[in-house]
């Protein structure tokens, strides 16, 4: 029999407010590099990540405010309910998880299944409105949360992609792990009071901090760091620098413009200088976009690819070459 610990009521040190403020700052920081890079790489993907993260972060802040109201003002979990059990306590996390599910469908290009998250929101809300039982809610939210977490972590680790891996950790610790701890403390540890809400804050803070490591490229530089590959890249760089050096007078004459290129397969970045006039000349087509076949000589990495560059020298997209005959 576990002993009942004297519950602490209220939030004496204002940890809830501090955590909310810190979370908002970290969330903005995590989004900054993504917003800066939104015109590089595949634009629609970057925009979708930004949109999903913005929505998710907003939802988490909304949850934080609810925890603070519960801790400081004596509101009970789900006291704002309508019907039997449809309250922000269940609805907000569920919408947040469904947004993640929708984003996973977008990544997997399963456009035909886009309606499933909305239909699930409808039926789960209806079940919560009609019945106090949360079994269906718990089962669906667990499955919908675990699948993205496993996919992100697996894909991130396999492709050595820090951003995707950090999304996995973020997804797990922003919602799933803290709620598991929260309910274990209530049912397993027989705890009550303010203390049971702290894991929800700290875990989400850890999640958003880890997301920063991914978006700012720290994980790519220090965790998924490959010495052998770096050596290859360096060699390629030296070769390229020599080549650029040779072509310098011509570039200067025509007025060059440097573009940061990123391989769509392995995401190795490289800066290249293109003659202004030549690119603008080629961009006089219907769409004003130049298709460039790059890296045929494998100077950046092992993969030849196509880049779409507009008149402003901004990368509009990439395409990997599957086969060359």
């Amino acid at each position: 029999m576990l002993a009942q610990v004297e519950p602490i009521t209220g939030d004496p040190f204002g940890i809830g407010w501090i955590a909310t403020f810190a979370y908002a700052i970290l969330a903005i920081m995590a989004l900054l590099p993504l917003i800066k890079k939104r015109k590089q790489g595949v634009q629609s993907f970057n925009k979708s990540v930004i949109l999903w993260l913005l929505f998710s972060l907003f939802m988490t802040i909304d949850r934080f405010v609810e925890y603070i109201l519960i801790m400081n003002f004596g509101l009970e979990q789900g006291s704002t309910k309508i019907g039997a059990n449809l309250s922000t306590w269940y609805f907000v996390p569920f919408v947040s998880v469904m947004a993640e599910f929708l984003f996973i469908l977008y990544i997997l290009r399963k456009y035909k299944f886009y309606s499933i998250p909305f239909i699930l929101i409808f039926f789960i809300s209806l079940s919560l409105y009609q019945y106090a039982d949360i079994t269906a809610f718990a089962i669906i939210i667990t499955i919908s949360e675990l699948v993205p977490v496993i996919l992100y972590l697996w894909k991130g680790w396999k492709n050595k992609d820090g951003l995707i891996y950090s999304l996995g950790i973020f997804t797990a610790f922003d919602f799933f792990v803290p709620y598991a701890i929260h309910y274990s403390m209530i049912f397993g540890g027989n705890l009550a009071g303010t203390i049971i809400y702290y894991p929800l804050f700290f875990s989400a803070l850890f999640a958003v901090a880890y997301l920063n490591l991914g978006t700012w490229g720290w994980l790519d530089r220090h965790v998924f760091y490959d010495k052998e590959r770096e050596k290859q890249i360096k060699n390629a760089w030296i070769g390229r620098l020599i080549e650029i050096e040779k072509k310098k007078p011509e570039v200067k004459k025509n007025g060059g413009k440097s573009i940061v290129l990123e391989c769509p397969v392995c995401h190795v970045q490289s800066k290249r200088v293109f003659a202004h006039e030549v690119v603008l000349q080629r961009a006089k087509n219907e769409k004003g976009i130049v298709k460039m076949l790059l890296n045929e000589d494998k100077q950046i990495c092992e993969h030849p690819f196509v880049a779409y560059v507009d008149r402003e020298f901004a990368i509009r997209g990439y395409e990997a070459i599957d086969m060359k005959v």
């Binding site: 035909k112 886009y114 309606s115 239909i119 699930l120 409808f122 039926f123």
Partner: peptide, 24 residues
């Protein structure tokens, strides 16, 4: 509109599953 392709089928499947589980 690819996203609407199976939307009505999924919704009706949801209606049937809801009835099966709730018996309402």
């Amino acid at each position: 509109k690819e996203s609407w392709m199976y939307a009505a089928w999924f919704f009706y499947a949801g209606v049937i599953l809801y009835m099966v589980f709730t018996m309402d």
